[in-house]
Design a protein around this nucleic acid. Structure first.
Lengths: 158, 158
DNA sequence: TATTGTTATACTCTATAACTATA
DNA sequence: TATAGTTATAGAGTATAACAATA
C-alpha cells in the first residue's frame, strides 16, 4: 500500500515520488541536477557554466566551427552565444577568424590557453561525474550514455 | 579520424559533439530537452509547465503533503512554489487545509477537477514520452529509468 | 531568398535574504 | 533553535523580432 493511500501519513515523512518515476523526462532532469551539482563546482572554478563549458569543448573538438554550427549542435539560440563567445575572446581563450570561403562566417579557434583550460576542466568534470554516479558500474554508465544518446540523436532535427 | 582533426571541414557540416557524449550530464540534458519538447505540448494545453505538472502529480499521489515536502521531493525552492500553488488554488485544482497536528503547515489536497486534470495529463505525457523515445525498446526504456533513478536516489541528500 | 552574426529585449526559471508564526 | 510558509528581489537561462552583410 503506497503512502499516498494512507491518510495518517506523517507531515515530516519524505513524499512518495513513485508515480513520477515512470516519466523519462522527470528522471532525466533529476539525474542531470544530481550530476551537474558536483561537476559545476569544477566549471565554476574557471568561470564556466554547463553551457559555456559545452561550447568551449565543442570548439576544441571542432576547430574552425562557426557560431551557427555551435547553435545547432548544442541547441542554444544564436543570440545567446554572442556574449558567451565575446567573453571567451576577452579572456584570451578563443579567437574568431574570418572564414576564407564565406565572408559572413567567423571560424572559432581556441588559443593555447583555451586548449589547456578545456583539457583540464574536461578531466575534472569526468572525474566528478564518475564520483556522482559511483552507484553505477562502468558498464551501466556506458549503457546509460548510449540510451540517452539515442533519444536525442535518432530524430529528424538532430 | 574525427572531423575535428580535419582542417578542411565544411562550414555547413554538422559539428562533431562526440567528445561531449562522454559526459553523463550532457547526455541527460540533451535527452531531457528532446523528450520534454513533445510532452510539454500536452502540459501547455492545460496551462502546465514541467515543474508545475510534477507538483500537481506529486500532490495527487501524496494527499495531504505540505509544500515543504514538495520542495524537498522535487528539489524546488520553497519560494518558487508559492505562486504556483496559489495559482492552482485560484484555478480550483487544489485546496490548502490547515494541518491539525502542526499549525504552521498547510496540507495540499487536489479537488475533483484537479484529480481529473492530473489523470488526463499524466496519460497524455506518458504517451508522448513513449513516442519521443520510440527508438528504445520497452526493456531499454525501463533500464534507462532505473539507471537514472539510482543516480538521484542513492545519495545522502535524497 | 536564405543564412551569419548581431542588438535589443522579454519572459521563464531558479536562487538568496529575511520576515512571521509555530514547534 | 529549528521549521513552514511567505515576500521581495536578483540572477541565470532561454526566447523572439528585427537588422546589416553576404551567399
Amino acid at each position: 500500500m503506497p503512502i499516498s493511500a494512507n491518510p495518517a501519513r506523517r507531515a515530516t515523512a519524505p513524499a512518495d515520488a513513485g508515480a513520477l518515476r515512470r516519466f523519462v523526462g522527470y528522471n532525466c532532469r533529476r539525474a542531470y541536477l544530481a550530476v551537474i551539482e558536483h561537476s559545476m563546482r569544477h566549471m565554476a572554478e574557471h568561470e564556466l557554466r554547463p553551457t559555456s563549458f559545452s561550447v568551449l569543448a565543442l570548439v576544441h573538438h571542432n576547430l574552425g566551427i562557426n557560431s551557427r554550427q555551435v547553435s545547432r549542435a548544442l541547441r542554444v539560440r544564436p543570440p545567446n552565444l554572442v556574449a558567451m563567445i565575446a567573453s571567451f575572446e576577452a579572456r584570451g581563450l578563443l579567437e574568431r577568424r574570418p572564414d576564407p570561403h564565406d565572408a559572413r562566417a567567423l571560424g572559432l579557434h581556441l588559443t593555447a590557453a583555451g586548449r589547456r583550460l578545456v583539457v583540464r576542466v574536461e578531466r575534472a568534470v569526468l572525474r566528478a561525474e564518475i564520483a556522482a554516479t559511483s552507484m553505477l558500474s562502468d558498464a551501466e554508465r556506458e549503457t546509460l550514455i548510449e540510451l540517452l544518446g539515442r533519444i536525442y540523436s535518432d530524430r529528424a532535427d538532430a
